[in-house]
Design a binder for these strands. Structure first.
Length: 573
DNA sequence: GCCGTTTTCGGCCCGACTGTTTTCAGTCG
């Protein structure tokens, strides 16, 4: 897949062009880079299928860029890119990661001080060579040093699941002020992206000053970057930034739409507004001076001829076109899950008893809960052998018999061994309501073997679900080397569901793969993999990713009632 | 460099804030 390599090159070219003040060419390259990054089809396949002509059908790609893509596919490099790099040998991608540094400042520092990378930049700032320069000053120099410190500490982005608790607290604190009429989180947090750069919050109020004073003095604030009447920005001690915008209530909807983004989605919606002779900005939808909408997001979308688009879908990957035709898929809702079926109990070293897990699941308003303890290969997780599994089943049977709990299903999370066989006997697996199988070892296997390993596991008629199918840990461990298309075809053929693991560190399947699975007609389940009863509530993150992957209720098996779910598993094997 | 339901030429999203200026460029979202 060359899409990402090419996207990276075009992003860089866009920055270099901006440096040279060629802003419109820069926009063109940036746009193509974004398209390539989010495109599902391999650009190499497109070229193979229809040559230059087919490349030009990609939005934003014209003759010129098509030729550059061809050049890259044939020779592995792009001459004009190398030339740009030669002209200004500056690591722009590195330098612009520092808050407040962009192409223009980078250019000035290169020409005057020879700054080529992050290290040079830090050295120049530390030896106070930057502040005397024209256009720079004390503050800029200080901000550069602080920006570099921040980068070293945080790697830039935080996991969604790690920041939402504090975001909820801030929302509650601000929301309790009497001056606040409405409040919502916006930006990538509202879109539920798996990682977050900074947090955007929006408030509707007629008296913003008091709120801003309160905001920059919140107990978690380490530093206020800026403070104004409509926008303030702070860094929290937790290591990420929060932006607060305040607008008048009559613009709350349009501002929420605007600050929720994504940027690409906004560009698309604004284009539609322009085509209709309207103007869309954070203050509303306007025809000339006349405001047509602004109070709610629904009004805004309606005014430009679109139906409401859920925040999780706003990435300009086709949702705007469907909204124009009023044919968006009805994506799964946050209350549609009927039971979590990947939960561990104290039988395999989890924190809580089966009874406690069932009680916690009842509080989640579930109809059922599935206990799927590890099996014997995983010694470190106290995996159960055939005999222990039998004992555990008896406990579940007696709990179910007592009638005092929600329905408890008997499952397990078995291990897929290197050859694709399962680490526990088929007779034992057959006695369970369902079987989850997952890879927990030899994760660095080569692509062909790993793909075949998982497919072999799916061929076992007892296996119903593959847990965390790609094995990634966000920002820590890459996905296994697998041919995902082959996995999808096998999942469809053998009627095996793929898990959407809700753990904020995993989110596996991820959004793009969920969409591919859905398109391939493969069923999924959304689970938490809870090892503690408090982790059941993490399901919201899995549902959020499912929504980002456009999954509908019918695609998600544990949105079915228990009997329908069990029937599915029975008939699938 | 790309693009077209007023356009094959003339636009390309656009407003807020900062830090440096003395009227604005650069950055961000």
């Amino acid at each position: 897949m060359k899409n990402f390599d090419l996207a990276k090159i075009f992003f860089e070219m866009a920055s270099y062009l901006k440096m040279k003040d060629e802003s419109f060419r820069s926009i063109a390259y940036n746009r193509v880079a974004l398209t390539l990054e989010s495109m599902e089809e391999d650009v190499e396949d497109i070229y193979g299928r229809g040559g230059l002509k087919a490349l030009e059908d990609i939005p934003g790609v014209g003759k010129n860029i098509a030729q550059k893509i061809e050049e890259y596919l044939k020779t592995g490099k792009i001459k004009s890119y190398l030339n740009l790099k030669k002209q200004t040998p500056v690591k722009l991608d590195e330098i612009s990661m520092v808050e407040g540094m962009g192409p223009k400042k980078a250019k000035a520092l290169f020409e005057k001080l020879g700054v080529r990378n992050l290290k040079d930049l830090e050295k120049a700032a530390k030896s106070h060579k930057i502040s005397p320069l024209f256009g720079f000053g004390e503050k800029t120099e200080k901000n550069i040093l602080e920006g570099i410190e921040f980068l070293k500490k945080s790697k830039g982005r935080s996991l969604l699941g790690h920041i939402t608790p504090i975001v909820d607290e801030i929302t509650e604190k601000l929301g309790s002020l009497k001056e606040v009429q409405e409040i919502s989180v916006a930006g990538s947090v509202r879109r539920r992206k798996e990682t977050i750069g900074d947090v955007d919050m929006l408030v509707a109020s007629e008296s913003p000053e008091k709120i801003m004073d309160f905001f920059v003095r919140l107990p978690w604030v380490a530093k206020a970057w800026s403070k104004g009447k409509t926008r303030s920005s702070v860094r929290l001690t937790q290591g990420f930034d929060v932006d607060l915008r305040i607008v008048s209530p009559k613009s709350f909807g349009s501002a929420l739409q605007y600050f929720t983004g994504s940027k690409e989605h906004n560009i698309a919606t604004r284009r539609i507004a322009i085509l209709k002779g309207l103007k869309l900005n954070e203050y509303g939808v306007f025809r000339g001076q006349k405001a047509l909408a602004g109070k709610t997001e629904e009004d805004v979308y309606r005014a430009i001829g679109l139906c409401y688009i859920p925040p999780e879908m706003r990435e300009d990957t086709g949702e705007v076109e469907l909204a124009q035709k009023n044919s968006l898929p009805e994506i799964i809702g946050y209350k549609d899950i009927k039971g979590d079926i990947h939960c561990h109990s104290d039988w395999d070293g989890g924190e809580n008893s089966i009874k406690d897990m069932a009680e916690a699941a009842r509080k989640m308003n579930y109809e059922y809960v599935g206990i799927s303890d590890h099996t014997k290969y995983l010694r470190i997780e106290h995996g159960l052998d055939e005999k222990q599994l039998e004992e555990r089943n008896k406990e579940i049977d007696s709990l179910n018999k007592s009638g005092r709990h929600i329905r408890i299903l008997k499952g397990c999370e078995a291990n897929i061994l290197n050859d694709g066989s399962i680490d526990i006997k088929d007779e034992s697996l057959a006695k369970l309501d369902y079987v989850i199988a997952g890879v927990h070892s030899s994760m660095k296997m080569d692509k062909e073997r790993m793909t075949q390993r998982i497919i072999n596991a799916m061929k076992n008629p007892n296996v119903d679900i593959i847990s965390h199918p790609t094995g990634r840990l966000i920002q820590k461990r890459d996905e296994y080397q697998i041919d995902f298309d082959k996995i999808l075809r096998a999942a469809k053929e053998f009627n095996v569901a793929l898990e959407i693991n809700s753990s904020p560190e995993r989110l596996d399947l991820k959004d793009a793969n969920i969409r591919r699975a859905k398109e391939a007609g493969v069923k999924m389940v959304i689970n938490t993999d809870a090892h503690h009863k408090d982790q059941l509530k993490l399901i919201e993150f899995g549902i959020a990713q499912a929504r980002r992957g456009w999954a509908e209720k019918k695609d998600i098996l544990n949105a079915y009632p228990a009997d329908k779910l069990l029937n599915y598993f029975k008939n699938a094997s």
